[in-house]
């Protein structure tokens, strides 16, 4: 996971170009509409001005995202193990897992608020619902895609079912699991913000980033809204970086998705 100059420079140049275009667009829109697109330095100033609120909201959203994400990992792995062991259970439950993924979260939110109460519990459950599907699908796929010859090898050495799961199926499924984890990692902060947007307004500590969006929106604080957006981005980035780091730790030595270590 080496970070090279050759990958940093293009990104820096593209970022600068983006800011330049931002200023450029602002230069050509009519003064009456200028409030719609605050210039980058005003957004930066808004960060400073609302620092405490933004940090607090990011923390609240981060906690909700982390809780929902972790819960999803635990339940999805347990579910994937169950599904991989039995074709009948898999056939029986798969359609409902699909349905779970189709559920519109925005519509579920009010129900959850009534059931679990607004704030952290609802945000956690909504994040869980969003993260669960990619995790369970990928992990199950990994657990049932074990190389057939290796399964036969284990059979010939009279391995127990438990040995087959622990020494073969689970490690062989790790790359699939991490694919699911990456997807879930990007979804978790978004899920928490969406959850907070629709179910977080009476949370303690002033709510999360979603709730802040509602407040700033109502107050027409455009620069603060932009700052909120970027706070969400940073939170997402933290999640993705953490998941990528974990994936690197577990896979880089042996999996072909990472460069080979030197001989």
């Amino acid at each position: 996971m080496k970070i090279r100059c050759s990958t940093i420079w293009p990104a820096l140049i593209a970022g600068s170009a983006f800011i330049a275009i931002w200023y450029g667009v602002r230069g050509i829109i009519s003064p009456a509409r200028e409030f719609m697109l605050p210039p980058p330095h005003e957004v930066l100033a808004a960060f400073g001005e609302h620092a405490t609120e933004l940090l607090n909201a990011s923390r609240n959203t981060g906690i909700g995202a982390l809780l929902g994400f972790s819960l999803a990992v635990v339940v999805a792995v347990a579910m994937a193990l169950t599904l991989s062991l039995n074709n009948l259970i898999r056939a029986g439950l798969y359609p409902y897992l699909m349905m779970m993924q189709m559920m519109p979260v925005i519509v579920i939110a009010p129900i959850l608020v009534l059931w679990a109460g607004a704030g952290l519990p609802s945000v956690t459950i909504i994040t869980f619902l969003i993260c669960f599907f990619p995790l369970v699908v990928n992990t199950t796929q990994g657990l049932i895609s074990t190389d057939r010859s290796l399964v036969e090898l284990f059979k010939m050495y009279r391995a127990s079912k438990w040995q087959e799961i622990v020494r073969l199926r689970v490690p062989a499924a790790l790359p699939y699991f991490f694919t699911g984890l990456r997807i879930a990692g990007t979804l978790a902060p978004i899920g928490a913000i969406v959850g907070d947007f629709s179910a977080g307004n009476s949370a303690g500590n002033g709510g999360g980033l979603g709730f802040l969006t509602l407040i700033y929106g109502a107050q027409f604080k455009m620069a603060a809204l932009f700052a909120t957006v970027f706070s969400g981005c940073v939170l997402g980035f933290v999640f993705v970086a953490a998941v990528s780091g974990l994936s690197w730790l577990c896979l880089h030595q042996w999996h072909d998705s990472y460069e080979k270590p030197d001989n």
């Binding site: 073969l168 490690p171 790790l174 042996w254 999996h255």
Partner: peptide, 10 residues
């Protein structure tokens, strides 16, 4: 086997 059939993670 025809392939080495090794545990890649070991």
């Amino acid at each position: 086997f025809q392939e080495p059939t090794l545990l890649a993670w070991q």
